[in-house]
Design a binder for these strands. Structure first.
Lengths: 225, 225
DNA sequence: AAATATGTTTTGATAATTCAAAATAAACTA
DNA sequence: TAGTTTATTTTGAATTATCAAAACATATTT
């Protein structure tokens, strides 16, 4: 009948890993999948074989798993529910951006399309959630995006923070307290790989230092004017 | 650990049947429980025995089941989530009162206390949902209510509709189209048990005829002034 | 009281999701 | 190439929630 929330979570996870890579065609390793989902490796193998049975993924033993077109669409719709829910929790219920991920993680499986559509309309058909993650349209299409990060953008050039690719609550609170939420305009002053350090000048000329791993989690776009 | 949504549904159902009766002390029969939950009789027996194991109900074979104090509280908190969610869907998302029951039926198991508290605050700590069902407080307490219905209230006296004790979407749409939603002031003109008919005069002097079974589903209170 | 009807419990099975541990395959190292 | 490490799959078992059908208990009727 309907995909269980377990199935939805597998598809969503495969989708995210798959589309994190530039090409979006890579096979996702079973170990990685199991680790992210917090299940034993064998569990993931079993589940993925079942998903392959229902045509949502292709599975090559010892190689990995990849979404088929139907799987891709289903996964995108789960992400649509998740991200609209997150934005809704922030904008309408006034929750903080570091707590809505876990909340949406559960609500995404319970909210019907009717509810999701209402939320979508109420928020003005938004294109991104509070972390800057793009919201797929009702058909599961996502506008392709490929932004540089604070690790790869030109030094000195003003950029606007577009997206944060890590949902960890502590990290998000740090970004908030450092005025590095999406929408902020900043520029990289110094990048020092020896010291594993990126120095950013932001709001009110504030100087923030972050590690390179963290810098890579902040996607940015050139700020014009 | 946490009560599964199945457990929550059993408790909720037992609670509703139990408190529908005036005393609120009656044993709920297994057959009735199974029927409402849409499961086979044996399934209910098995589940109820498990609930009894965890101390949420007392169970007397061949007699029935009753909530214990902890079970009563848990059930009330589930109803709190359900009813706040319903009101929220109507007031904030603008959904119609006949579609929110099923929606809330799923969301009640996914919404955390944080979300529920936000909703509660946003709606001004309401005391009833769109159907007039009382909303338990955060400790699970419900203000005791014992209203007459259109079947038992005095004939001719103006009364205000307080509560509708049936969630069936068709019935609710009928009430809406007949201006018999909670809040409306009406009075019973004629009650004819031979014809199984209650004649109600309502908004704009409109006359509505309903059967006695339906009349019993509309709780009312004397309308003063 | 015997017979019947009704409601309840037991039993044996199934599906979905999971784990731990054993078996196996692939990749790397020397 | 042989040996070792790492990743993956298989196997056997547990859990939760369910059903159908057989067995049983209680209540009602004659």
């Amino acid at each position: 009948m309907f995909p269980s929330s377990t199935v939805e979570n597998y598809l969503k996870t495969i989708y995210k890993v798959q589309s994190a890579e530039s090409d979006g065609e890579r096979l996702v390793a079973m170990g990685q999948l199991a680790h992210i989902l917090g299940v034993a490796p064998g569990t993931a193998t079993t589940m993925v074989k079942a998903l392959a049975e229902s045509g949502l993924v292709t599975y090559e033993p010892y190689a990995g798993v990849r979404l088929t077109a139907p799987g891709l669409k289903l996964a995108a719709l789960v992400l649509r529910r998740h991200r609209l829910m997150e934005l809704f929790l922030v904008q309408v219920l006034g929750m903080s951006w570091d707590e809505v991920h876990d909340e949406a993680e559960r609500l995404e499986h319970a909210a019907s399309d009717r509810v999701i559509d209402r939320i979508d309309a109420m928020l003005g058909k938004p294109s991104a959630d509070p972390h800057g993650d793009p919201i797929p349209d009702p058909e599961g299409a996502v506008s392709a995006q490929n932004y540089p990060t604070l690790l790869t953008c030109p030094v000195g050039a003003p950029v606007v923070v577009i997206r944060v690719t890590d949902q960890d609550a502590e990290f998000l609170r740090f970004l908030e307290s450092s005025d590095l939420k999406p929408g902020q305009v900043v520029h990289v002053e110094v990048r020092d790989s020896a010291a594993d350090q990126v120095v950013v000048r932001g709001k009110n000329d504030r100087q923030i230092m972050i590690g390179m791993r963290s810098a890579a989690k902040l996607q940015v776009a050139p700020a014009d004017a």
